[in-house]
Design a binder for these strands. Sequence first.
DNA 1: TTTGGTTTTTGACATAAGTCAAAAAATAAT
DNA 2: ATTATTTTTTGACTTATGTCAAAAACCAAA
Lengths: 187, 187
Amino acid sequence: MQQLLTHITTYHRLSAEAEKALQECFTEITLNKNELLLTQGNVCRHLYFLQKGALRGFYNLDGKEITHWFGFENDFVTSFHSFITGEPSVENIQLLESCILWAIAKETLDDLFNRHHDIERLVRIIYEKYYIRLEERYVNAQFKSAKERYEELILQTPHILERVPLGFIASYLGISQETLSRIRSKF
Amino acid sequence: MQQLLTHITTYHRLSAEAEKALQECFTEITLNKNELLLTQGNVCRHLYFLQKGALRGFYNLDGKEITHWFGFENDFVTSFHSFITGEPSVENIQLLESCILWAIAKETLDDLFNRHHDIERLVRIIYEKYYIRLEERYVNAQFKSAKERYEELILQTPHILERVPLGFIASYLGISQETLSRIRSKF
DNA sequence: TTTGGTTTTTGACATAAGTCAAAAAATAAT
DNA sequence: ATTATTTTTTGACTTATGTCAAAAACCAAA
């Protein structure tokens, strides 16, 4: 919990009361490797803070699993579309390692927003940062070669190679595993 | 201005006072076709609401212009990264048609946030919707073929073909103009 | 260790998309 | 209308990446 509180100060400093209220609204969850935090078809009613571990978001397309994001320490994770719209999720969230997570339900968060302007500001600022991150990913996906995308990924998340199977990384990069292997072989 | 006020109610209904305050903070701007709303290297200090017209965001890469987004009626536009971080923009915003815009400066918006929780909520909700949109674009960019991306674009923005030269559309789709032409020729 | 399973790499070939050059079509200017 | 300019299409060829199959490397138990 302390880690979550410390982490959010990198975005915005909360008042003591807001911090206390926030603290009371998160619940600790631990799950084991390969377990699913969310299964497609279900509504994702929670936002999670990933304290320790790694996970991936993936969906099924023509019988193949497409990994479209990874989560690591200090990431906020959820099936965003489902969480916001309340519609069933098209994606699954699977643990790549055993994880410690902190969960908050959407209604609880909305309630916090009503009680503490400060917390809504915090989330507004977090959204801004996450939006910028996604914009960067979008530009990479659309306008860079497979090799460039791979190099960019290693730069951004150097630890990823030791923690995530190459098959998932290839999928995330939008290339076949064979192509990724060949890119890697040419140092 | 009325169009802006009406449009934001599709996201969140403001109190009368908040609406009044908001109204006073936007300034009307009209610009002609081909003019630049923002030039790379400059900090983008404003958020704009596009009442009428069309524009594009593009940046230069190896001497080529990469169009990475379009704006149309009722879109909020800015160089988001620059607007949020205060760093010089890497992108340009150019008018594809003569436009009517409403501008608000970042400090003015921050001031509104302090005075009206309600307006910060509105923006938080707008961010959520724009994030979801961008996620969809990302998935298209990364995991779909050029043909699929084109079909998706036509579905989302049917009017785009009459308003935007194919060269810009090809760039936006991340393909060469020749490839786009060939996709189109096979109906 | 040895075995069995998973993950990663390699090879041969197929396909999607890019590049360069030129023609054709559409638009704008005289 | 006629010419000039820009936009779009077509053709020939190249390159990046995908697919399928098999081999190799790696890992985890027994």
